[in-house]
Design a protein around this nucleic acid. Sequence first.
DNA 1: TATTGTTATACTCTATAACTATA
DNA 2: TATAGTTATAGAGTATAACAATA
Lengths: 145, 145
Amino acid sequence: MAEELDVRDVAAALHVSMGLLLRRLRQVREAGGLSVPETSALARLDRNGPATSSELARVEQISPQSMGATLSALETRGLVTRDPDTRDGRRVVLSVTEAGRQLLRDKRDARTELLAKALADRFTRQELDQLMTAAPLLERLAQCI
Amino acid sequence: MAEELDVRDVAAALHVSMGLLLRRLRQVREAGGLSVPETSALARLDRNGPATSSELARVEQISPQSMGATLSALETRGLVTRDPDTRDGRRVVLSVTEAGRQLLRDKRDARTELLAKALADRFTRQELDQLMTAAPLLERLAQCI
DNA sequence: TATTGTTATACTCTATAACTATA
DNA sequence: TATAGTTATAGAGTATAACAATA
């Protein structure tokens, strides 16, 4: 009983604080910066290697149509390329370009930089460890709901 | 040096996993349920007591206009009331109604329930403790960026 | 002048539906 | 028939700008 209540408290606390944090982060958009879904899709493509739009939509938990729009925006900016699959005419494989990789590596994602700065300035080493421990748990949580 | 890189890793990991989780949560909307910002505003009003629209907008990190729209929706559903401040004609004080309190208490927030269920089913006691430790840190992070 | 709140408008992200092309 | 992708349309959430009322 007490345990179940406790789980609900964890859920509520996480829900509220993540919502607050992401609302704040979404507002950050430097000139030339990427939107949240663009950043997420590009980073995923970089980490996991080439993939189709449908596959990306599945792992990122959005509709194929939404992912298509996001990828079109990235392609227009030269950050990803579309290559038709020669063995299956329906498939189009997306890859990160050198420019896309550069953008990810050159610490130019304004949101992540903002977060990093705040973390460095206002959090102790121990607190950073605690957040680092929580991050993969949050990702796992997203995948199992 | 190594430490600064580490902070950036924490930031990136948090950013990605929170984005994924919230995108997933936003899709959950039971009949009669509240949207994410509605839930957040109502819960805030319940925790902190009566407040004006501007005050709520500040703590929730959205524009006064957006908060006004959210509160109108909550008022239409009878979950909050608007009371003019007799000493300052500009101010309108919002309060949670009994129905609003009931809705918050009766564990009827589908998103938080979904989270709680996943947490109870798939996470160990230790992992729950780690997430509980991280929640207030995330909230603090939201407030200082 | 400064503050609280409202109205009008537009942009971003996402969804669903309908379609084409390929398997 | 089933799958990959595109196009069209709509809705939610948010922003900015302009305004009215009050202090």
